[in-house]
């Protein structure tokens, strides 16, 4: 399988507290250098809690944010940051909040036509044909085209958002929490639609979510993000069943599962590390039951261990409690 998307040392640092002309007072590393490869036709799930940098990563991938370091390669060709339209044709984004991602003062037709006009320069007849095709593939009726976004339910609006992303004819879709604003019965409809589209159109997905069960159900591989770094990366069926990184285990144990007694996996209240004043060693060390002095002094790097990559000095062994 060839690589659809390759990230090399991609990172993002935000300046904090800049004056009118002066240099920034401090910096926050939202995403530490990440190197990742996503294969053609693969779904890579990215999980992590709020503030772990998953949205920053997604916005860099589609060119909405400029990376501080590193490169993005699509199908072997490096992306040029200068031309946003070039990004749009190769990689597209589906937003979390379906309603606010649609301009309330435009009709659905105007919204879907925008990428056709600006990215592909299609004439009216071509556009009509293409829109009919796209709407058929996301199960929307064409009579919706002349309505405004507020007339749609969350599930329908998310289909429209997906249709817009498809219209750009990009082969890679970044799905940023695409179902977390939807009701559970509608969630499944949208997830199944995404699976069908991927099969029919040969798409590659990056599926970002905080919902472990949803990510596990749709992904081939999963990357666990903590404090801006990938701490574990492996096949979806293994990663929560046999977690190697203590943080992955904490996530898996925290997810409410029917039939499992209610316990707080962390006894005491633990605060997340402060981004303005990051810890010296492993960011998870303060919360980790297995942390040693080495963990507090040295940052572990992502290393292959069996089928998974783990960034931990004392990973759990499969089957160990």
């Amino acid at each position: 399988m060839s690589a659809a998307l390759t990230l090399t040392d991609l990172s993002k640092t935000f300046p904090v507290g800049r004056g009118v002309f002066g240099a920034p007072k401090a910096t926050v590393k939202a995403v530490h250098p990440i190197t990742l490869t996503v294969a053609q036709g693969e779904t890579l799930g990215i999980v992590g809690e709020s503030g772990c940098g998953k949205s920053t990563l997604a916005r860099m991938l589609v060119g909405l944010l400029e990376p501080t370091t590193g490169t993005i390669e699509i199908d072997g060709a490096a992306l040029d940051n200068a031309d946003p339209a070039l990004f749009g044709k190769r990689i597209q984004y589906v937003f979390q909040d379906p309603i606010s991602s649609l301009n309330p003062r435009k009709t659905i037709r105007q919204i879907i036509e925008a990428p056709l006009i600006h990215l592909h320069g299609m004439d009216r007849a071509q556009r009509t044909r293409r829109i009919a095709e796209i709407f058929a593939s996301v199960n929307l009726r064409e009579e919706f085209l002349d309505r405004y976004p507020h007339e749609f339910s969350g599930g329908q609006a998310q289909r429209i958002g997906i249709a817009r992303a498809l219209a750009a004819q990009a082969s890679i879709l970044i799905l940023d929490e695409p179902v977390s604003a939807l009701d559970v019965s509608v969630q499944a409809q949208v997830l199944n639609l995404l699976a069908d589209l991927k099969r029919e159109l040969g798409l590659t997905y990056l599926f970002i979510s905080h919902d472990l069960a949803v990510v596990e159900a749709v992904s081939d591989r999963i990357a666990v993000l903590y404090f801006g770094s990938v701490v574990e990366l492996g096949p979806a069926e293994d990663i929560f069943r046999a977690p190697r990184h203590p943080y992955t285990k904490l996530l898996a144990d925290s997810a409410p599962v029917v039939g499992r007694p209610l316990t707080a996996p962390e006894g005491r209240e633990t605060e997340l590390p402060d981004p303005l004043n990051p810890p010296k060693g492993c960011a998870f060390a303060a919360r980790c039951p297995r942390a040693s002095d080495r963990c507090r002094a040295e940052v572990p790097v992502l290393e292959r261990q069996g089928a998974v990559d783990v960034a931990c000095f004392h990973p759990l062994v499969a089957g160990e409690e």
């Binding site: 589609v62 060119g63 990215l119 750009a168």
Partner: peptide, 8 residues
């Protein structure tokens, strides 16, 4: 953001 990605 969506408009920017649509090439506007």
């Amino acid at each position: 953001d969506a408009a920017r990605l649509a090439g506007l």
